[in-house]
Write a protein that binds this DNA or RNA. Structure first.
Lengths: 241, 241
DNA sequence: GGACGGTACAGTACAAAGTACGAATACACT
DNA sequence: AGTGTATTCGTACTTTGTACTGTACCGTCC
């Protein structure tokens, strides 16, 4: 594999921090986070392991950076548009991106310091909600709710036993058979009569929940922030400013 | 549960699969997932590294098992009770458990085959919703929504830069100062005027969103499953502005 | 032109982690 | 005592991250 050929052609495009990080994303996309090692990364870049250390100080830094790189792929909500349209677009984009880079969700948990793309992101979403007339309090509520839902949905999606080409049925059926007569009756019933039916796609659930949340937020925004249903809590938080 | 010790100083309580797995949880709780190595686990159990392999076949199996162990800590909804009460209780319990074992969320992503506690869990939640009169379709919608929210919220909570004793202000303030004059104006405004105010606790947001979801689900259950709000049904949405 | 220094890579080597393999120990029951 | 099974440990190999050092290729200054 050492190139015995001519000297002029085929030279590799020269390393760079950019190429190192994008290479890391590519390796993780292809084989999962556990396949991303300094050696595998170096190999995919066509260099020797220690060469990547010229551009990053250690693997931790690579992980911090590629998480932010993933975030930078998510579409920002536009400042001027209808908030529902923009928030919906951003939610779908986030889900799509996290599905394209499933390893990113696991990383979010361990990387504690947000990168610039992450911060820019938060800023844009807050701006959209505030521009729509949400109070600070309602903005905080809405943002926590929307992000929780989006990330949580993505988390569930990547946690499903099948990835890519397999359909639910292929993988779930053998599992289900083992319990078919007794242990988890309701789960099995739902699985056989609903989840495993031909047209079902878990991903479609995203839209339903998102609509429910957006509708409920609209109602909250036009009435007050108060919600019924909770017998004993108070949220404190005065009128700031 | 402890051995009646006798006068022997050594007196190791004898290893067991149970002790290995509980020890693994304890090590991860204390120092995070990356501190859980076969060697550290063995040390905490008072044995040599290779001894744990008598009870588990490899580290992967340990990870699979402790994730299910964590799930087993979450309270199951009771079959007979009011569904809102039961679902709320289970949601709070889940959040509490995941906060007690923050490393578990990251694991959920990589472990694809659910353990018995996880399955029992799903079964109980489905049973509760079905018993409340939810159709299969609405049950699927509701479950995806509730779980996404719960896990997503927990994911955000553990991703916050401060863990345990630190308050938001302690950690966010220095970060915020670096941007105080321009880069992320809306984020900074929200941070200084809301998030960093004395009484604020991100964890309180959980209750608000949960109430919103439960209210909206109640409405969906009594009317129909159809939701308005989505103009174009598909995410392709060539519209923009 | 030759010394010099900075840039971009590579080679060597070591520590920490998972774990295969088999030996050592303990205890039971002939 | 002898044989067998259950449990634990010692040794060693492999993969990983990375510290330290070396080297090839530039351009600059005298």
């Amino acid at each position: 594999m050492s190139e015995p050929s001519d000297d002029s052609r085929d030279e590799r495009p020269r390393l760079s921090r950019e190429r190192v990080l994008r290479g890391a994303v590519a390796v993780a996309d292809a084989g999962g986070l556990e396949s991303l090692t300094i050696r595998s990364l170096a190999q995919s870049l066509g260099v020797k392991p220690m060469s990547v250390y010229y551009y990053v100080s250690n693997k931790e830094e690579i992980l911090d950076c590629i998480i932010d790189l993933v975030f930078s792929e998510i579409e920002l909500p536009a400042a001027g548009g209808d908030w529902r349209t923009e928030i919906r677009r951003r939610a779908h984009s986030a889900r799509r991106v996290l599905r394209a880079h499933p390893w990113a969700i696991g990383l979010m948990e361990s990387r504690t310091s947000p990168g610039p793309a992450t911060l820019r992101h938060h800023d844009a979403v807050i701006a959209t909600l505030r521009a729509a007339g949400f109070s600070r309090e309602l903005t905080a509520h809405a943002y926590a709710l929307l992000d929780s839902y989006t990330y949580g949905f993505a988390l569930q999606e990547v946690g499903l036993p099948f990835n890519g080409s397999d359909t639910v049925a292929d993988v779930a059926e053998p599992i289900m058979e083992r319990f078919s007569t007794g242990e988890y009756p309701h789960l099995v019933e739902m699985a056989t009569d609903y989840y495993l039916q031909p047209g079902y796609d878990f991903g479609d659930e995203f839209e339903w929940g998102l609509n429910l949340i957006l509708d409920a937020l609209t109602a909250s925004a036009t009435s007050g922030t108060r919600h019924r249903s909770d017998p004993d809590r108070e949220s404190s938080a005065g009128r700031g400013q």
